[in-house]
Nucleic acid binder design. Structure first.
Length: 850
RNA sequence: GCCGCUGUGGUGAAAUUGGUAUACACGUACGUCUCAGAAGCGUAUGCCGAAAGGCGUGUGGGUUCAAGUCCCACUAGCGGCACCA
């Protein structure tokens, strides 16, 4: 009990001190020191306080920031709040409170907890995405996207929860059910803002080369974007004279070499050609009916159902034929829902010999299978011969006899020359749906004017199709910049709507505005932005958090960016990282930021599982709350344990017993320093032996902290402490201070307390956290004697101890080794074939029995 | 199916990048302190063997004086993507 009070006393004492001296941790916008921007993902301030994942992530960042600060860097380690979002909105609706209030409470609570856990954030740079002075610039970015043609309105299906009366993001839909209320989710078509992230697809892949992200993160980004190289190829539609507008259908393929193997063509039910086909009535009546039914059925199926029915391919013949441009053959056109309208051209060429899906389809509808790659007698009755990227072409006109890779190239060339297609890339990445039908988000700063829209539509009908995109946005104007921010109207209480519109739509006074173009009556956009919008650029705002004329000043951005290390969770390695990289790239094009990539290094930490090895969740009851652990054992013990559990980037299981190990170490460490200091006197100098241990320790800990090897850094401190406590070493005051400094980033309270006791009141820094990091004296890294293993046939048989000065003398060392009794025995009756000596490392005799 | 990562004691994990495998910690056993317990502290702890010694980093092969580390094949688990043409 007494002990417990002791650590709490120390914690509150130093927390107080740090609060009163914010300069300790503040970043200077100008400095002779090198800058270091250490960023941790800012949290969503939920009502339940910091969870263990926050504590883990922030401790990791904090140790690094403290370490870098002590090394003499001008460190920026900021914190803020990603505070827009559903939980707050729902809570506010339920309790009939204003979300602004709820957010204020939560962020106050989070801030207090963070201070307690000794995170050395620069609180003068705090940002909050729900602050109008902040989201003014989030809105500004959207307007720029619109002005550059990267934002457009489009009818899009959304996930609609009929019970919550709210549109759901994909992440909120689990098994086709609403994540919160469990009701079956339906789909509604709603006109939404979409951002053309696909325009940046190539740059988002290629830009990864300029970063030091770990491979896992790079691959996740590349997979998500999903680039494939191939060609679009046009197929002539046969004998449909009355269908004057469409004479050709275009497919996308990565394997142009298989063109001679195409025996049918499949089109997606959503393809506009299918609709016009139905309208035109050029096809036979029975086909017409079948196609109509099929299309209607497909529309009813959800994406999930369509994907789940993978094995069974379905489709119907349209009655229409197209011409294979390679050999002039007429092939049938089918409608089938295994072709996705959202990828490629929505039309696929069927190559049943070499694609399993096409083969399945061909089998079901009895279509011809023509192999075009040497198959060594493959049996096409059973399955297709797939993933053939080697071999010679057969049955393939001019390409016959070519190697596959060559054929792909040659056919692509031929297709381009003949004007029937072109090389192109396709991406799995889709444009980014940017509208949310919620209250608690940034209002999208757009105004719709009906009369302007009518005029524009008229005009664009006169101009040609190039204007198509503008037509979609007809009547939409950005709010003039000087009117930003468009603030969320404050309301006492509000309810979601029934119509699929945002709750803002009900606030008619707010919605009504004037058209920036014609000055007539117009309406505001009532949708708000997705959660990602505010977190896309927050790291820029930290550079200059109160600027009201720019999102941040050029000068400060140039000084601080890019972020040197970005610490965050695996779950943000795809979307958040991709979106923020995209926005940063875009800002680079606007010449707002100096480089195309925002983050130099991405450090993604692992997950901490509950004691039962399951993900922590309230329903499982296995949640570990950091503040509870800190109350029980002390903040430093918690921090030390978190960092010692295992490698920073791996998944780990919480084990309360192991926490004791951290506690024991910390207690022993503190006691050791106190005893040493009490017996210390000015005449004492550390022995050479001590200096060697300490210098090796400094070198090792420095190297480990640099690379986030916190677990091994702590292990090295433990090891050194063992060595010290087993002998009667004496320590100079400098060495005692060095040990405290090494501990400081990991256990800031304990280190600060010890420092206050041993520091020289006149000479030393008041806080250990701004004291200079210990330097390594190289001369102490080498010991005077070296212990080397002596091996026979690669097995260790003996050790020899040699003077460092003589390790270059191979003859002498080998002789010494041979004279060892044990080695003599092993060399008896043997012929030495080889004597291997690695200076300072080992001796190895390769022998054979006679 | 494609891409990436990982397999080391009873457990979490180390290994200076090809050079003494299992550091550090947990757990366990024994000892010590105590009236007693808890907490401390100390010693031991990969497997077989009385010992000498042998065997050991998912499995099988290879390169090398030397392989947890490099190469090939397999296998298991984790993560990302996925009717993506």
């Amino acid at each position: 009990m007494a002990e417990e009070n002791k650590f709490k006393e120390i914690e509150s004492k130093w927390q107080d001190y740090w609060n009163k001296n914010p300069d300790l941790y503040s970043a200077k916008d100008n400095s002779d020191k090198p800058k270091k921007y250490v960023l941790v993902e800012f949290p969503y301030p939920s009502g339940s306080g910091l969870h263990i994942g926050h504590a883990f992530s922030f401790t990791g960042g904090d140790v690094y920031a403290r370490f870098k600060r002590m090394q003499g860097n001008n460190v920026m380690f900021p914190m803020g709040w990603d505070a827009f979002g559903l939980p707050t909105e729902n809570h506010a609706i339920k309790m009939k409170r204003r979300p602004q209030e709820v957010t204020k409470e939560n962020t106050d609570n989070f801030r207090e907890e963070m201070k307690k856990l000794a995170f050395s954030f620069d609180w003068s740079r705090e940002v909050n995405t729900t602050d109008p002075d902040y989201y003014k610039w989030t809105q500004w970015i959207f307007i720029k996207l619109f002005e550059k043609g990267l934002a457009y309105k489009q009818e899009m299906p959304i996930n609609w929860c009929p019970s919550c009366k709210i549109g759901l993001a994909n992440e909120e839909v689990i098994d086709n059910k609403c994540e919160r209320c469990g009701a079956e989710v339906s789909r509604r078509n709603i006109s939404q803002w979409v951002v053309k992230i696909t325009d940046y697809a190539d740059r988002l892949i290629d830009g990864l080369k300029e970063t030091d992200f770990i491979e896992k993160v790079k691959q996740a980004q590349i997979n998500w974007i999903g680039r494939s190289q191939g060609a679009r190829i046009k197929f002539q539609v046969k004998s449909l004279s009355s269908l004057s507008s469409v004479r050709k259908l275009e497919v996308f393929t990565t394997r142009a070499d298989t063109l001679w193997g195409v025996t049918f063509m499949v089109i997606s039910p959503e393809h506009p050609f299918v609709a016009s086909l139905l309208k035109s009535k050029v096809i036979k009546l029975e086909s017409l009916k079948a196609v109509e039914d099929y299309v209607n059925q497909a529309r009813k199926k959800s994406d999930l159902e369509r994907a789940e029915l993978q094995k069974e391919k379905t489709g119907v013949f349209t009655g229409v034929y197209v011409v294979n441009p390679a050999n002039g053959k007429e092939i049938p056109l089918y409608v089938a829902d295994y072709v996705l309208m959202g990828y490629g051209t929505g039309v696929v060429m069927g190559v049943p010999a070499h694609d399993q899906r096409d083969w399945d389809f061909a089998k079901k509808y009895n279509l011809e299978v023509i192999p075009v790659i040497e198959d060594g007698g493959h049996d096409y009755v059973k399955e297709a011969m797939v993933s053939v990227d080697k071999g010679k072409m057969i049955n393939s006109g001019f390409a016959t006899g070519m190697e596959v890779k060559e054929a792909i190239n040659k056919v692509n060339e031929w297709v381009e020359k003949e004007g029937i297609g072109e090389r192109t890339n396709m991406y799995h990445l889709r444009d980014w749906i940017f509208s949310r039908q919620h209250y608690w988000g940034e209002p999208i700063p757009m105004i719709f004017c009906e009369s302007c829209a009518k005029n524009q539509n008229l005009e664009s009908r006169i101009k040609n199709q190039e204007e198509n995109r503008k037509k979609i946005n007809a009547g939409w104007y950005p709010v003039p910049e000087e009117q930003l921010p468009i603030k969320l109207p404050e309301v006492e209480a509000y309810e979601p709507t029934d119509t699929g519109e945002s709750p803002l739509a009900k606030m008619t006074d707010w919605v009504k505005t004037t058209c920036p173009k014609c000055g007539g009556e117009a309406k505001r956009e009532t949708d708000t932005m997705p959660n990602w919008a505010g977190s896309d650029w927050y790291f820029l705002r930290y550079c200059d958090p109160v600027n009201d004329t720019e999102l941040a000043s050029q000068e400060k951005i140039k000084y601080w960016m890019p972020v040197d290390v970005y610490v965050g969770g695996d779950e943000h390695n795809t979307l958040h990282l991709l979106y923020s990289r995209f926005i940063y790239n875009f800002l680079f094009d606007l010449e707002v930021v100096p480089t195309p990539e925002p983050y130099k290094i991405r450090m993604s930490h692992g997950v901490i599982l509950g004691p039962d090895s399951q993900r922590m969740s309230k329903s499982r009851g296995n949640v570990v709350v950091p503040s509870v652990v800190a109350d029980k054992y002390g903040v430093d013990v918690l921090r030390l344990y978190l960092m010692f559990m295992g490698p920073f980037d791996s998944t780990m299981v919480w084990n309360e017993k192991t926490v004791m190990g951290a506690k024991r170490f910390l207690d022993r460490f503190a006691q050791f320093i106190k005893i040493q200091f009490s017996i210390f006197n000015e005449t004492v100098e550390s022995s050479k032996e001590v200096k060697v241990i300490i210098n090796k320790l400094v070198a090792g800990v420095t190297r480990d902290l640099e690379s986030f090897g916190y677990n091994t850094a702590i292990a090295k401190l433990m090891e050194a402490l063992h060595k010290f406590s087993k002998s009667n070493f004496q320590f100079s005051i400098e060495d005692i201070k060095t040990l405290i400094k090494l501990l400081a980033p990991l256990a800031p309270y304990t280190a600060e307390e010890l420092w206050s006791q041993v520091r020289d009141k006149d000479d030393d820094d008041v806080s250990v956290h701004v004291a200079p990091w210990p330097r390594v004296e190289e001369k102490y890294l080498v010991e005077e004697t070296v212990t080397m293993p002596v091996m026979v046939n690669g097995k260790v048989r003996e050790q020899i101890v040699v003077d460092r000065s003589s390790i270059v003398d191979k003859k002498k060392i080998v002789k010494m080794a041979k004279e060892k009794e044990k080695i003599k025995k092993w060399l008896e009756e043997c012929e030495i074939l080889k004597e291997i000596y690695v200076p300072g490392k080992l001796v190895n005799f390769v022998v054979s029995t006679k």
